[in-house]
Design a protein around this nucleic acid. Structure first.
Lengths: 243, 243
DNA sequence: GTCAATAACTTGTTTAAACAAATTTGTAAA
DNA sequence: TTTACAAATTTGTTTAAACAAGTTATTGAC
């Protein structure tokens, strides 16, 4: 339920673009026209449009108009590009998801871990290994490090369902942003074992390391997601920066 | 040279954050304070700050303030995250770059190519294969498809230096945005030959496929960049979307 | 001292207006 | 018809103001 005007306009325009109300390469109605359509101010409309620009849906051209450059992406099994849980992504793409908890433990961060996680030495952590299945096939091996004091009462049962659901709906935490780094790494024996891949085929994994912050500005999670390379796809839209 | 006020404020704040004028997890001065510092309106200041949010540099908290969450990333040889040429990226990270043209030809797009490039069937294209070296080591094998009518007068000599330099400074084209998809693919014999990797080590490549648009809303380039997996790093910051 | 209400301060949203800059359209002269 | 100029249309930038919503500091009653 959008709580602001610009969000609802953004969602409406986005939906119209996705459903071909405006053809590819066609110009959207001008700002003045859209202002009358939505009965809003120019700023509010422009705020909505600027988000479509960030999404790579449209492109604004001074003096000309706003061009629709949206083209639907061919969906593979798992496509990421936003902050969403495995469950959400699976649902959105119409797949069946299952999560198996391999390990659920807790410890304090040591010096080596502090380097790659970003947590301070001595921080108390829940460490969880989970295997995510999509339509019965193991796709992602997750190593989660959750800040213990920020995620009280976490249990293996919750981890088997959706931790993010617990965070947002039970603890009422708000997830804000997530810094992610994508790399390619050698497949380990653990990867091979759980993802049932033989290294003769692929011997690499797509690895997404992320640091996630809540609305208090606290980094409460570090996660390394190891993806089956043949079912991995990362989408991004970049806007040319000003020099 | 920033042409607008919000850009110069953005750059100044960004530079201050990178140079530790504000400590990690510290609050930035309040909007009112910064307005007085920069002698600008609240909207202009907020516009600058919102870009820092997009960059993952700061996080705004209603009622509290703006928190610095910037942490410098450990640089590997090649880090991407913005639209920039190989040359630019190499320079920025203080490395020596060299580009070798392997193939320079032209043809019309067929049906198969239309599917993955996004160009229409029959479109005239410059097709270029290039090998990018960083500090003497071959890192990236590029397959460029340039729209011929948008890039007139392209030569192998230009391709050996910087095509983007030619586009921007000679043709005065403005590059606006780029849709990118990151995947992991099996190493081909061509990859193996030119990147001098033996498949016993890594047998995969990090592949970035991109469609790039100019300021006229024309997709003028499709490129597949095949990266050596052990020197590849893709940085991204995601902001939680509204549902 | 403790607690609750109030005030002050912070960021978030929205509107209105003016001017700038780029493009397209219309008009009039050649 | 063509050209050149002016006008209209489009997006881009900036300012000002008002109110909303969340957090923190202060005040005052007990």
């Amino acid at each position: 339920m959008p709580k602001s005007i610009y969000e609802s306009i953004y969602k409406d325009l986005k939906q119209k673009i996705e459903h071909d109300v405006f053809a590819y390469q066609e110009l959207l109605p001008s700002e003045n026209t859209l202002i009358q359509t939505y009965h809003c101010s120019r700023n509010t409309l422009r705020r909505a449009v600027s988000r479509l620009v960030s999404d790579g849906y449209v492109q604004t051209m001074q003096g000309k108009g706003v061009r629709n450059i949206y083209q639907p992406v061919a969906q593979t099994a798992f496509t990421i590009g936003e902050i969403e849980s495995f469950r959400e992504s699976a649902l959105r793409n119409g797949h069946q998801s299952l999560t198996k908890v391999l390990l659920f433990t807790e410890f304090a961060i040591d010096e080596k871990q502090a380097l790659y996680t970003g947590f301070s030495v001595g921080t108390d952590i829940y460490y969880i290994q989970r295997l995510h299945y999509l339509d019965g096939m193991p796709l992602i091996l997750n190593h989660n490090y959750f800040l213990k004091e920020a995620v009280p009462g976490l249990t293996p049962e919750i981890a088997e369902n959706s931790i993010y659901d617990y965070l947002e709906n039970t603890l009422h935490m708000t997830i804000v942003n997530s810094k992610r780094i994508m790399t390619v790494e050698k497949m380990t024996q653990i990867d091979e074992k759980y993802l049932k891949l033989n290294a003769e085929d692929y011997n690499c994994m797509a690895v997404v390391s992320s640091q996630t912050y809540n609305s208090d500005g606290v980094m409460f999670e570090y996660t390394q997601s190891r993806h089956r390379p043949d079912h991995f796809r990362f989408y991004d839209n970049a806007i040319r920066k000003i020099t």
